[in-house]
Design a protein around this nucleic acid. Structure first.
Lengths: 225, 225
DNA sequence: GTCTATAGTGCGATAGAC
DNA sequence: GTCTATCGCACTATAGAC
């Protein structure tokens, strides 16, 4: 079985790398030409936006407060983010890289379905650990986006769900698992993985580690004594 | 086993009743003296607030828009709700009656732990079905409340969790269930019950009924083949 | 008890100096 | 590339007629 640490290495995406990607995608809206400066400040802006938004909500967060936190003046801030709405768009793009990678599980992990399930869950949990504030942000704001954007996010979840469902069905066919309703079961996996990053504080208090939680979820789904 | 319908009857709380309770608790802030008129309009205000808030978020919802939806002028609206913040407080009070009742399961339901678990889950799901917009609202806004208010809501969840944990432990002691980690398992039940009202649309598309979902959750937790 | 009109505030965004 | 100063707008909340 692939160890948790190895999994971590296999999906490490530098936040800087993501910011560079976003910078290039939004060249039209970003006035600052020096790439090094732009990336440094974009990173600070994104980080502060997530932090503030996750405290008071994106709508309630004022650009003035954001300017204080980033230690950029209003004017400087607006040479990175055309508008508050555009800032939101950029943060949505942030997910492009993540959602895709969360299903890039090396297929060779194991022939055994349960191992593949566990590896997938661990991969997912590690991703949400590293980018917790972003996942929290998207979940909490998604419901308030316009229909089109919401649809895109819901679709992301459906892809994840189908991915887990396939593992479960393969496991059943191979006789390694016995699962009545694979759709609802896959849906439960998603819900439990989301609970982990939505209530991070609670699990911290319970002193449950990421690895323990992954094992627990996997057992809940598959172990039928 | 107690039927779903019987359970429904046992916990039906009229929304009007709740509004009357809130009216009396907030007599100081509500200028309208005629109780019948006050309750009628309070109900409309609460309903519209939940609807609007769940579309755009409470902070983003404007009182102007609320006045349109309720067909009350700005002036009239403000003779019911001292301020937008006070309106939020009233909606929090709404939960007082609900949280309490959700654990008022008639003890005589069954001696069997699994039946008691299933009955509790069904009770919970029925409550969240009837008051879905309120539960959704609280979950989505809770994270943005001040620390004190958030603590109160988290405590509510802890009580629910302890309640489920006790059923699980009783079941284990009686030899009717075999559950390794009752804390995490109880926590999972909560997460899955929340998923039901947070993603109501998704389950509607999957054509899963409330009763089916309750059965599924209960099975996932207890059935060890 | 409800209305219209408006006061007062803080917001997102911009202009122009440096 | 960053700053300060400020514009115009939409918001919450209120005053006073009916």
């Amino acid at each position: 079985m692939t160890s948790f640490c190895k999994l971590k290495e296999s999906i490490t995406i530098s936040k800087q790398e993501i910011c560079r990607e976003i910078l290039h995608k939004n060249r039209d809206a970003i006035k600052v030409k020096n790439e090094t400066v732009a990336i440094t400040n974009l990173m600070r802006i994104f980080e502060a936006t997530l932090e503030l938004s996750n405290q008071v909500g994106f709508q309630a967060m004022s650009v003035r407060e954001l300017s204080k936190r980033t230690k950029l003046s209003m004017g400087a801030l607006y040479s990175y983010v055309e508008s508050k709405e555009r800032l939101l768009c950029m943060l949505l793009q942030y997910g492009g890289a993540l959602g895709h990678r969360s299903r890039q599980l090396p297929e060779h992990v194991s022939e055994n379905s349960r191992d593949r399930l566990l590896a997938s869950i661990k991969l997912h949990i590690y991703l949400t650990e590293t980018y917790q504030s972003w996942f929290f942000f998207i979940y909490m704001q998604a419901k308030f986006f316009n229909k089109k954007t919401l649809a895109r996010i819901v679709q992301e979840e459906e892809i994840s769900e189908a991915y887990y469902q396939k593992i479960l069905e393969d496991g059943c066919q191979a006789g390694e698992m016995k699962i009545d309703n694979t759709i609802l079961t896959a849906s439960s996996i998603i819900a439990l993985l989301q609970d982990w990053y939505l209530k991070r504080e609670k699990y911290r208090k319970l002193a449950v580690s990421a690895e323990q939680y992954a094992d627990f979820v996997c057992d809940l789904i598959t172990v039928k004594l």
